[in-house]
């Protein structure tokens, strides 16, 4: 075989798109989503204002489909296909990176279920309108809180570890030293997202506005 045929390159392109879609747009959106939800830690009015702005963007459905639903569906479904081709062996070869490989798959599944449920309850359930009161009402339920924390941890881990994978798989971090640095960067992103997410969830649960001190 002298060169890959057009057909045989398809899997390469799909693999690369799967990897890329995890960072852009999905990873970027996660950061943005955490950012906009952080307004819930500022004040109810600010939160409602920001979410109102987001809910009134033009071409909303098309935008959401292009930037969110299709990438997430593709990233997840193709990710499950990739998962199905691997056979994890973390029990027989219990190296840390091997556990990360396994966790990346399970957190992906958890994130997929969580996002599906999250979309159902917050986006479609509310017909596309989210107000602070509605979310806070949901978050009064400790089971909701637990589910959100699990979801947020899974998404954050998946993004943080995914960024490390991305750096290695796109030839950005090549030497062991660079890969270690990329690993720390991924860990930083993962931990930051986890903390931010948990604080936001708890903010809704306790009607807590720790970042609202400078509003008045």
């Amino acid at each position: 075989m002298s060169a890959a045929t057009a057909e045989s390159k398809t899997s390469y392109i799909l693999d690369k798109l799967q990897s890329l879609s995890g960072v852009i747009p999905i990873g970027a959106y996660l950061l943005d989503h955490l950012w906009s939800n952080s307004y819930a830690l500022v004040s109810i009015e600010k939160y409602n204002q920001v979410s109102g702005d987001l809910q009134t963007v033009p071409w909303r459905i098309a935008l959401e489909a292009a930037v969110l639903w299709i990438p997430i569906l593709f990233h997840s479904l193709y990710g499950f296909y990739i998962w199905s081709k691997g056979k994890s062996n973390a029990l027989s070869h219990p190296w840390m990176s091997n556990w990360m490989y396994l966790l990346q798959r399970w957190t992906g599944l958890i994130a997929f279920v969580f996002i599906g449920w999250h979309l159902y309850t917050e986006r479609f359930g509310g017909h596309g309108v989210t107000r602070y009161a509605g979310v806070a009402e949901d978050m009064a339920n400790p089971l909701y809180v637990a589910a959100y924390i699990i979801g947020v941890v899974a998404c954050s881990f998946h993004l943080g570890n995914g960024l490390w994978n991305f750096a290695c798989k796109w030839g950005i971090a090549i030497t062991p030293k660079a890969q270690r640095a990329a690993g720390w960067f991924g860990a930083l992103v993962g931990v930051s997202c986890t903390l931010a997410g948990i604080v936001i969830v708890l903010g809704f649960h306790y009607a807590w506005f720790p970042l609202g001190g400078y509003v008045q």
Binding site: Y12, S97, Q104
Partner: peptide, 13 residues
């Protein structure tokens, strides 16, 4: 091509 580099999922074993 199939079985190529993109299959690597960075388990680093």
């Amino acid at each position: 091509g199939p079985g190529g580099i993109a299959e690597c999922d960075n388990a680093q074993n």
